[in-house]
Lab assay of single mutants.
Amino acid sequence: MLEGKVKWSNSEKGFGFIEVEGQDDVFVHFSAIQGEGFKTLEEGQAVSFEIVEGNRGPQAANVTKEA
């Protein structure tokens, strides 16, 4: 699992980007967020995730919010 911080997200469009130190930003779709209820990410929020190869390149999977 990698750790990063949410660079920005748009809940209306359903995606955002995660900033990882020393690496390119990672695309995240809201379907990759683990948990119940409305899935949102806040700018600056710490997250853990895996990287998978998506249709348009690397993207985050199994995203969990850190406490």
Rank of each mutant, 00 (worst) to 15 (best):
I33H: 02
K13R: 11
E12C: 14
L2H: 11
V28I: 08
A61R: 07
V52L: 07
H29R: 03
A60G: 03
K7Y: 05
L41D: 01
V28K: 00
G37F: 08
G35D: 08
A46L: 15
S11E: 10
V47I: 06
G57P: 03
F15R: 00
G37P: 07
G35A: 07
G54M: 06
I18G: 01
I33M: 08
Q45V: 10
G14I: 06
L41Q: 01
K39Y: 08
K13A: 09
G35N: 09
D24L: 10
V20Q: 04
V6G: 03
F17C: 07
P58C: 07
I33T: 02
K65D: 03
D25K: 03
E43W: 14
E43T: 15
G44P: 00
E36D: 13
E19C: 13
D25I: 05
V52T: 08
R56H: 11
V52E: 06
Q45D: 15
N55V: 14
L2Y: 14
G44M: 03
M1A: 09
T64Y: 13
E21W: 12
G22D: 07
E3Q: 15
F27T: 01
V6A: 01
E21Y: 12
P58W: 09
S48D: 03
E3P: 08
E53V: 14
K5S: 08
P58M: 09
Q23Y: 14
F30D: 02
V52P: 01
E36N: 11
N62H: 09
L2T: 09
N55Y: 15
Q34M: 13
F15Q: 01
Q23L: 12
E21C: 14
V63T: 02
E19V: 10
A32C: 07
S31H: 07
E66G: 14
I33P: 00
G57L: 02
E19K: 12
E42I: 13
D25W: 06
G16E: 00
E3A: 14
S11M: 14
E19S: 13
Q23C: 12
Q59K: 07
V52H: 07
T64A: 08
S11Y: 12
R56F: 13
V28T: 03
F15A: 03
F27I: 02
K65S: 09
A67K: 12
W8D: 02
V47D: 01
A60M: 01
I18T: 02
Q34L: 14
M1P: 10
T64E: 07
N62P: 00
E50A: 08
G57W: 04
I33N: 02
T40A: 09
E12V: 12
K13F: 08
F38R: 10
G54F: 07
A46K: 14
S31L: 05
F30K: 04
V28Y: 14
T40F: 13
E50C: 14
E50W: 14
S9W: 15
I51C: 07
L2I: 11
E50D: 08
E36Q: 10
K65I: 15
D25H: 03
V28W: 15
F15D: 00
E12R: 11
F17Q: 03
G16W: 15
T40W: 13
V20T: 06
D24V: 11
I33G: 04
G35I: 05
W8V: 03
Q34T: 13
E36F: 10
G44W: 05
H29C: 12
K13C: 12
V52Q: 08
E12M: 11
V63G: 01
T40K: 09
D24P: 15
E66H: 15
V28F: 15
P58G: 03
L2S: 07
K7F: 05
L2M: 11
I51H: 01
T64F: 13
Q34A: 11
F17M: 05
L41S: 01
F49W: 00
N62E: 04
S31Q: 05
E19T: 11
V6T: 02
S48Q: 13
G57Y: 03
F49A: 02
L41H: 03
E42G: 07
V28G: 01
E43P: 15
S11R: 13
A67W: 12
Q59G: 02
G35F: 06
F30E: 03
P58L: 10
F49R: 00
Q45C: 10
L2D: 04
F27L: 04
E36K: 09
W8M: 02
Q34D: 07
K7T: 06
Q34C: 13
E53C: 15
G4W: 02
W8Y: 14
E36S: 11
A32H: 06
S31A: 07
I18M: 01
G4Q: 01
G22Q: 05
G16V: 03
E43A: 15
G14F: 09
F30G: 04
L2Q: 09
V28P: 02
G4N: 02
F49Q: 01
Q45A: 09
S9F: 15
F17R: 00
V52N: 04
V26H: 01
S11V: 14
F27R: 01
T40P: 04
D25T: 05
R56I: 07
K13V: 06
F17A: 02
G57I: 00
E42W: 12
H29Y: 06
E66K: 15
I18R: 00
F27K: 03
N55S: 14
F38A: 13
K7A: 04
G22F: 05
A61F: 09
G16D: 01
Q59S: 06
E53Q: 14
E36V: 11
L41W: 04
E66Q: 15
N10R: 03
V6S: 00
S11G: 09
K39V: 09
E53S: 12
A32D: 09
G35V: 06
K65T: 12
E12L: 13
H29V: 04
V20A: 05
K13D: 05
R56D: 06
F49C: 03
I51A: 02
I18F: 02
A46I: 15
K13N: 06
V6W: 07
S9D: 03
H29G: 04
Q23H: 14
I18A: 02
Q34V: 14
S9Q: 08
K7P: 05
L41F: 06
G57T: 04
P58Y: 09
E53R: 10
D25E: 04
A67S: 12
K7N: 05
V63F: 00
V20P: 00
E42Q: 13
I33A: 04
K13Q: 08
V63W: 00
S9G: 05
E43V: 15
T64W: 15
V52Y: 08
E19A: 14
G16C: 05
F17D: 00
E50F: 13
K7D: 04
G14L: 09
S48N: 09
E12Q: 12
F17N: 00
E43N: 12
S31C: 09
K39P: 10
G16I: 04
M1S: 09
V47F: 01
K5N: 08
E42D: 10
V52A: 07
V52D: 02
P58F: 09
G4V: 04
W8H: 04
G54H: 06
H29L: 08
S11A: 14
V63K: 00
Q23I: 11
F15W: 15
G4S: 00
I33W: 05
V47L: 06
E3M: 15
D25G: 04
F30A: 04
E42P: 09
E36H: 11
N10T: 05
Q59E: 12
